[in-house]
Amino acid sequence: MFNPEIFFQALVNGLLMGTVYGIAAVGLSLIWGVLGVVNLAHGSFIILSAYLTYWFFVYTGLPPLSTVPLSIVLGFAAGYLLYKAVGQKVVSLDPSTSVLFFFGLSLLLSNTILNLWGPDVRGIPWLIQSFQIAEIRVSLARLITLATTILCFISLYILIQRTYIGKAIRAVVINRVGAAAVGIDVHSIFAVSMGIGIGVTFFSGTMIAMVNPFTPASGEGYLMYSFASVVLGGVGNIIGTLLAGILMGLVESFIGVYFSQSISPAAAFIILVLVILVRYRGAK
């Protein structure tokens, strides 16, 4: 028996959550595509930003949305400085060794968060409300997150498509050596990309803090979703990554509603493997 209310509710749920998965993966995708390193500490960066947002909310009482500019700037600074400090060395490493570097960084970050903020579950009780359109419930905080994310993503897209820096970034993704040959300063592009990547990641952390509770250990889960989105959507392809995230949200939602949510990770994995087999067979 087909119930349209449940179907459309599942669709809305999937879209709202999928956008969060998608934006959370964009930073990972960008850094991987441009610098060729897999940032295993991605989840820890997301949670760090979530805690900063939470902290800001507790001390100022302002709506968490007002943290957005701050978290983007902080994230950019963190990424840029990280590259300036050790990035050149890390990029030159064998891919498996750079993964190990980020593994160390992730341990360092998530346990610093644990020691700074304690292990308690945190959440921002802001706008836990929803409105109804024809029997479909739409969460207000999630809708605002969706709108903000779209806005942020469009700005990022314009930055990448229209500006010199963006064009240089795209050139580096396509061909690093060629880009250097035509006079692009690859290392400063790397530094800026790392900054943008972590900046977007921090933005997504703020979005997550607005809609979901979190603990210092939550990063691992978001890292898994992000990996899946990046691989599905294409490394370095930010639109693809965002859409893949949305797809993941939808798949999870429909499987959960029509079958059982307990099998959704396995289902997501099978889809992932199939996509990889079709797309990346023999790719390096």
Partner: peptide, 11 residues
């Protein structure tokens, strides 16, 4: 590691 419980709740 579920980050979204809306599927099970919708059900």
């Amino acid at each position: 590691d579920a980050k979204d419980l809306s599927p099970i709740l919708t059900k």
